[in-house]
Write a protein that binds this DNA or RNA. Sequence first.
DNA 1: ACAAAAGTGTTTATATTACACCCATGA
DNA 2: TCATGGGTGTAATATAAACACTTTTGT
Lengths: 240, 240
Amino acid sequence: MLISKEKQFDIWSQELSIPIPAIDIVIFTVYQNELCVVLLKQDFEWESSYILPGGIIAKWFSLEENFDDILKRKTWITGVYKEQLYTFWSPKRDKRGHTLSISYFALVSMDNFFKNIDFTKVAIVKYKDINEKNIGFKDKNIGSDHFEIIQYAKQRLEWKLEYTNVAKEILPEKFKMSQLQAIYEIITGNIYDKRNFQKKIFSLQILLETGEFDSSTNRPAKLYTFKDKDLKIIEKNSFV
Amino acid sequence: MLISKEKQFDIWSQELSIPIPAIDIVIFTVYQNELCVVLLKQDFEWESSYILPGGIIAKWFSLEENFDDILKRKTWITGVYKEQLYTFWSPKRDKRGHTLSISYFALVSMDNFFKNIDFTKVAIVKYKDINEKNIGFKDKNIGSDHFEIIQYAKQRLEWKLEYTNVAKEILPEKFKMSQLQAIYEIITGNIYDKRNFQKKIFSLQILLETGEFDSSTNRPAKLYTFKDKDLKIIEKNSFV
DNA sequence: ACAAAAGTGTTTATATTACACCCATGA
DNA sequence: TCATGGGTGTAATATAAACACTTTTGT
């Protein structure tokens, strides 16, 4: 006998002494010079409410495979940078489903983003517009801690930006120095002197000059690209 | 009808499409001038094999409560510093139980350690003596990735030591500068010039002089204590 | 010619590294 | 008196921070 996924879920949540492991995804992008998060949307008469894309995991697949599957089903986005964040659980969270949230942090470039995303399913919400009130579907008792998870992800993003070349996951393949600086300024909320910024970035030795120029605005700007294709952790000096 | 925990576990692992969430604990201490890990032991004729203390979580309690319960049941250790590490899952791990491992990293001071630990249950293994061969009970097909988890925890420990005052969780309440330096040297594997080490530590402003001295060896040594009772992240300079 | 973004150097302050001798105590 | 671990300072180098004008292009 086949039972629907919903039904099966409700049986589990009552019968078992364990919480049900699920994945929740905080996916950031930079859009219109703002840090944004891709969220699932529910509209009420005069307001909107959002939750993180997520779903229950299947034991036949790895966490990464489950992530890819869930993100694709919920948003149609594929091929993003992803990293596990933290696992959240409390007996109070998500009373209906009793799900344990293995949260992931993801980055998507605007290129990839517009190629893949399904706008009938998701909303792009400015990070600064997200607050406790518009996160979580109160009536269904889900997403109660999604605001906290987003905060946690933002912290991780700032950290990663400082210590790795992860900015490449948000930028197009080739970019000008001012675009790179903008990413850092948007995400950290600081503004930097462009001479010092450039000196710092060059000292990290993570960029290559392409020899090409962007002529879209006034004086043509040199285009750079990241040297390493994979995530590179920038080594810090020893403790002492 | 009551069914035993073992039996129930086996039913779950077969019937469910989800993995069973469990906690695995990597608990470090510094003992006899060596970095050590507290592990559960199984002796064979001519060799020993170890796994991480761990157990299945109950949804009636938070992760922290589950952690405390599991650690106490398995080792009798209580009141340690703990921090969630990472959640490991793959369809290949732990074939019998299909458990998903929410791993934790913990630190225990020798003081606390000897007050609480139950040596009939656990072994204290030098970190450097741990290898793929002596971790995991092959016959029972458990702990297959515990070596990987320990490596991950060691990395986190080094990081925490550099960026926080977490050393306080391993040291006694009052300690001399050379003890603090030893902790750093043992864990990072580096050796430091004691003048530079002192300058660095003082610059972080995380210590207080107690005014007391340790007279146990030769010239009496000043005793210090940590200024903050809670974990303090040492702010790094801004990116640029 | 002017508006807009790109490009470029120097000075000062701070942090890091390398390095060696004297001190207080117990045995 | 000597062996042991504790305590202390300075000079050289490297990194970070503050700061403003010129260049190239499109309009």
